[in-house]
Amino acid sequence: MSVPVEITINGRVFSGEVEPRQLLVHFIRENAGLTGTKVGCDTSQCGTCTVQLDGAIAKSCTVLAVQASGSTVNTIEGLSDGVDLHPLQEAFWNKHGLQCGFCTPGMIMASEELLRNNPSPSREEIRHALEGNICRCTGYQNIVSAVEEAAGAMGGS
């Protein structure tokens, strides 16, 4: 029943035999032990499982691990070494862009893609780019401010 899977996550190759039905988010959390990526819903709405799959954000609860075999995945743990923070991490911290922290990894991964595609987004554009990521704590306002600040720090304006 099992199928071989090999996925490069944050630069490290993880391989193994998994059931074809195993979701990518479970592979990341269980097989790779990277629990920064969360499961928040079961209908692809909430965005807490957002990772970058071959460079583009994806909801890893709506991808089978086997579909991602041969692909490259980046998760929150790959964004920085945890000491020298990514500008987005720094900005989320500075601007109080998180409270309970559960949506934060997905929010940051989605924001990272936004800033790659649009280095100087307006607040309106940031709000639209984050429409697939739900936060229940912050009311989004400080998240938007954090993305704005990170854009500035990364050379946008």
Binding site: G47, L53, A58, L114
Partner: peptide
Amino acid sequence: VGDPAVRNR
């Protein structure tokens, strides 16, 4: 369609 992550997949 959907949201950015959905549009990517």
